[in-house]
Amino acid sequence: MSEQNLLKTPLFALHVELGAKMVPFAGYEMPVQYPMGVKKEHEHTREAAGLFDVSHMGQLKLHGPQAASLLEQLVPVDIQDLPLGKQRYALFTNDQGGILDDLMVANFGDHLFVVVNAACKDQDIAHLRSHIGEQATIEVLDDRALLAIQGPKAAEVMARINPELARMVFMDAGVYELLGIECMVSRSGYTGEDGYEISVPAADAERFSRELLKHEEVAFIGLGARDSLRLESGLCLYGHDIDTTTSPVEASLLWAISKSRRQDGERAGGFPGAATILEQIRTKEVSRKRVGLKGEGRAPVREGTELVDADGKVIGQVTSGTFGPTAQVPVAMGYVATEYAAVGSEVFAMVRGKPLKMTVAAMPFVPQRYYRG
């Protein structure tokens, strides 16, 4: 997509006013950083409250009595028993057991609220339409912004606006009035910190953001720090750490498959690629696994870097990597041959022709601080 054809979020003018460096991302002009800089933005989110414009994401409502059962046929997670006011992480899988996208699904009672990745938005909507057809209504919300406020001070800030938000716990979702605006709110996020994701009508997004920025704990944070925050927290980025060539088993996302869908019973399977995925679970036989990697020194190991064993044999590849500002070491995730996937295994990253030692490490690299009550 050329520069002229890039889409803008409802907050574009505000980002420019605040001195953001704008870059193309998933078809949109998005802020990669502000004058504070990526490292300080990362640290601010870990210490106070970072505000993220994620309006490029796709927001959908699924209406109709069959919506939950129809969506459940496309994902390996239970949707029909998703309690009212709760949100769940899900994966769209294909017939080969690969991952088409990862998404969030919330039960709002009279509809399901679904958030999909920006780069996959059009294909996800087409995928839903082709499988759900006329049996449920898919409403694409093009007139809404999406904001995330993340960090240890996020709940404090939001409670000043509406005290009811303090009572929410991780993965709660509901409709709340904030600053006189009806918003769809979930207590969730993509940084490993406590926080909220807030769907706001596009026309109100700038006023809403300016009001949040009046709180001294709050600062806008760009895509650069969003990436280092989610990587330290061991969270996958679609199109990098997971894609159509990776199964949930290879991607170490077994927790994202409901027990009822992988154990014998009437709800077992019933999603695209189930035969392949359930066989991988049963036999534990996959050729590679997604792992966390910690480096030594300060040199970051970037996406695409080859991983080799002590003899120089290629055993995998890095899919995301940076120097972790909070972890204080180079952190990465990637895929390695299964025999090297155990925590503590030593591998080597080939950086400019030199092998840098890395150790397979448990993720997250930084403790997650979701509020569970």
Rank of each mutant, 00 (worst) to 15 (best):
D309K: 04
F92Y: 02
V75E: 10
L70V: 09
T245N: 06
G192T: 05
L356E: 11
G304R: 14
F208V: 10
Y370K: 03
K214C: 14
H15Q: 12
G344K: 11
T305K: 11
R207P: 03
V286N: 02
H240M: 11
F271G: 01
H63Y: 12
G174V: 11
G295H: 00
E232T: 08
Q263G: 04
D172A: 02
V75T: 07
E217N: 12
G97Y: 02
G373W: 03
P364W: 02
L70H: 12
V347C: 02
E279M: 06
E134L: 07
A256K: 09
P31V: 05
L178F: 15
G37E: 09
P83G: 08
I149D: 00
G324N: 01
M36T: 08
E182Y: 09
G321A: 03
G265Y: 04
P152Y: 00
V308K: 14
A49I: 09
L112M: 04
R372K: 04
I198Q: 15
E303C: 14
Q135S: 14
A268R: 13
C183S: 06
Y28A: 04
A205C: 05
I198A: 12
F92K: 01
P35Q: 02
S258A: 15
A203V: 11
D110A: 01
L100G: 05
M30D: 12
L128S: 09
Y190V: 03
P83T: 06
F12T: 02
R187L: 02
D311F: 07
D102E: 07
K86Y: 11
V347H: 03
A203T: 10
F12K: 05
K259D: 14
R288L: 14
P24T: 07
G312W: 08
D102K: 12
R352A: 05
M57W: 11
G222L: 06
D194V: 08
F348I: 06
S252P: 03
V140S: 12
G312R: 11
I125V: 13
A145Y: 00
G224Q: 07
M184F: 15
V314G: 00
L84S: 07
T283H: 04
A219P: 09
E303I: 15
V336L: 05
V140D: 11
W255L: 13
G58L: 06
L237M: 14
A337I: 02
L213F: 10
S130K: 13
L7E: 12
L6D: 03
N94Q: 08
P152F: 10
H240K: 13
V308L: 12
L237T: 03
L70D: 05
D172Y: 10
L179I: 09
D124E: 01
Y370E: 10
E217F: 12
K294D: 02
V360E: 02
S345M: 07
I149E: 01
S186T: 14
R372M: 15
V249C: 06
Y89S: 03
E134Q: 10
G174H: 13
Y34Q: 07
A90H: 07
F52D: 00
A349K: 01
P35L: 03
A26D: 08
E29L: 13
A225T: 07
F323C: 01
G192N: 07
S233C: 03
T338H: 04
R210K: 13
A225G: 06
Q123M: 15
E279H: 12
N117Q: 10
H56N: 10
E47F: 05
G321F: 00
G195E: 09
S247K: 01
